[in-house]
Write a protein that binds this DNA or RNA. Structure first.
Length: 554
RNA sequence: GCGCCUGUAGCUCAGUUGGACAGAGCAGCGGCCUUCUAAGCCGCGAGCCGCAGGUUCGAAUCCUGCCAGGCGCGCCA
């Protein structure tokens, strides 16, 4: 409908120009939007304003000229008028959106989907938490955002791969090994201390206990490097298993778990540095190798190989992202915490230096999560051991509520997660409002079935009988879903979905109190059953995109 | 000091890329259950869109400068 109106306006402009009533070289882009105010019609066009700039005539006057040239009547359009300073408002027939209902029933679980991605291969890398501990709130937000973004891309016709990058190399693994070693020695009564920069969480004591159950004291007198390697391998496997389990409990599944260490082992890191050197972007200073990010407008250069010969995390990340492109991803999306934003520019610079178009890498920066309890901020550092894990959160508030909360704010917003509130308020969560609408629908359909009634096929009934404002408002909202999904996917902003879900649920609840589905006259029953079924499908599809369950009873 | 993010109703936040008089949910007040789930519906109040300039037909939205909060500016990741 929107496209139809746009085309009509283009025709009107062309016709007006031919008649010498408007002058322009090329029709500027204009917007058709749904006005906030009902009286302003169903769609409003700002075409007169954008033309006014070039034509140097009052917009109001131009709008009237354009309306005169519109190819009227347009099917489904009840009224066209010029309003305010020059808007062209289209008021549609009240029931213009009704044809969406048969389409919803036919498309079922794919209603809302599209193919705007045209099969583009996209990788979404998210969470990628250090495998030295469990997942905290920041990881949880990243998990929810990444998973829903991946869902959105799938639903818009992209070929999506979900990936977790395992940081199983580098300095923190060294510290991890030293920490584990200290705990191991302590378990045998030998004096040892976890390094200051190490991991002090109590979880390592338990990990070491399980290691000893399996391996006993045989590493007590082994060479320290061998001992640490055995401990690290054991602990990494255990931590990764726990991370994977927590993510699965959260409804997040990965296609690829990619090891950083493998990049070092395969020589990919070394090769990336060599290639950069060949292209003249590497120089030596103070015994270290530096990448010349300033050549790309960055503030300073970055070390890629330390004085001691060990490559930095940055070096591995360059190799990793090159590897992503080599695997054939046309577009690569990373979900990062805002504390990593300093890394964005230099990584893009390095990719540009290697000959890749840096715009193929998109970084979604999400602001950090602060966890409140008893009015105080809880620290989330793994080192201190006092942080709330994703698992604990799931026990407290459940998967559905947690996911909804994490994605209902735009990524740019800081998220203060009040644990006490989440604990005490579970029944006030907006997610229940939405789920309740779904359960109510299912209840109607269940009851209908018990009475021997089924949802008729749209051809059998006259959908034009749906005339109540509550019915028509609901139909219009249902018709919006494809645009909402496409918009959210384009913006990489899942919160469009939570907002839409709440609006849809609200309109359904209104419909529910004003219109009876089963008790009314028989002629209305059929169309209303179709409307209810279409609402169920739409609501369920949105919830599924969010990774939230659509309960049939509550 | 420099860079990024944020500042909108008492609270938590939307505001789809510059559109008409600023929106929702909580919280508050007042109504609605012999009929499909009251975890619901209806109504009411509440705002200098951080502050000050600028850009134009038009600004919460874009630009500049301030103010406040968060995060970064490692041979950590």
């Amino acid at each position: 409908m929107k496209r139809k109106l746009a085309r009509a306006l283009e025709e009107a402009a062309a016709s007006a120009r031919a008649a010498g009533e408007v002058a322009y070289d090329e029709l500027p882009t204009f917007v058709l939007e749904v006005p906030r105010e009902r009286e302003h019609g169903d769609f409003a066009a700002n075409i007169a304003f954008v033309l006014a700039r070039k034509a140097q005539r009052p917009p109001r006057e131009l709008a009237e000229v354009l309306v005169r040239h519109l190819p009227l009547p347009i099917k489904g359009v009840a009224r066209v008028n010029v309003a305010g300073p020059g808007f062209i408002n289209f008021t549609l027939e009240e029931n213009w959106a009704l044809p969406v209902l048969p389409a919803v029933l036919a498309e079922d679980q794919y209603y809302g989907w599209s193919n705007i991605g045209q099969g583009q291969k996209v990788q979404v890398e998210f969470v990628s938490a250090n495998p030295t501990g469990l997942l905290h709130m920041g990881n949880a937000r990243g998990a929810a955002l990444g998973d829903v973004i991946a869902n959105l891309l799938t639903a818009t016709g992209h070929e999506v791969t979900r990936e977790f990058y395992i940081n199983d190399a580098g300095n923190q693994i060294e510290n991890f090994g030293l920490s584990l070693e200290a705990r191991y020695l302590q378990a045998f009564g030998i004096e040892a201390e976890v390094p200051e920069e190490g991991y002090h969480g109590r979880d390592l004591i338990d990990t070491v206990k399980r290691f000893i159950e399996k391996e006993g004291d045989r590493y007590l007198h082994a060479a320290p490097s061998e001992r640490r390697k055995a401990l690290v391998d054991f602990a990494l496997r255990e931590k990764l298993t726990a991370i994977k389990k927590a993510l699965e409990d959260f409804g997040v599944y990965y296609d690829v778990w990619f090891s950083e260490r493998s990049l070092h082992d395969s020589g990919a890191v070394k090769k990336a540095i060599e290639d950069l050197k060949e292209r003249g972007y590497i120089y030596e200073k103070d015994g270290a190798l530096w990448f010349r990010s300033t050549a790309f407008g960055e503030e300073k250069d970055e070390v890629v190989v330390r004085q001691n010969g060990v490559p930095t995390y940055f070096a591995a990340d360059i190799a990793y992202h090159r590897n992503k492109f080599e695997r054939g991803f046309e577009r690569v999306i990373n979900i990062w915490g805002a504390d990593h934003h300093g890394h964005v520019g230099r990584l893009k610079s390095a990719l540009a230096a290697l000959g890749y178009d840096p715009s193929r890498l998109q970084i979604v920066l999400m602001q950090l999560v602060r966890l409140f309890q008893g009015g105080e901020i809880l620290r989330m550092s793994k080192r201190t051991g006092q942080y709330v894990t994703l698992e604990e959160l799931l026990e407290e508030v459940g998967r559905d509520a947690a996911r909804f909360f994490f994605v209902m704010l735009k990524p740019d917003s800081h998220l203060d997660f009040d644990l006490d509130l989440a604990r005490s308020q579970t029944s006030d969560n907006p997610v229940y409002y939405v789920q309740y609408a779904h359960a109510r629908i299912c209840s109607i359909l269940r009851l209908a079935k018990e009475r021997g009634l089924s949802v008729p096929s749209p051809q059998e009934v006259d959908l034009n009988l749906l005339k109540h404002p509550a019915e028509l408002a609901l139909v219009k909202k249902i018709a919006e879903l494809p645009e909402v999904v496409a918009g959210a996917a384009r913006a990489l902003e899942p919160h469009w979905l939570t907002r839409y879900a709440q609006e849809l649920a609200s309109l359904f609840h209104t419909f529910y109190t004003h219109c009876r589905v089963l008790a009314d006259e028989e002629t209305l029953r059929g169309p209303r059953l179709i409307l209810v079924e279409a609402t169920r499908i739409t609501l369920r599809n949105v919830l599924h995109l969010l990774g939230i369950s659509a309960p049939e009873r509550m």
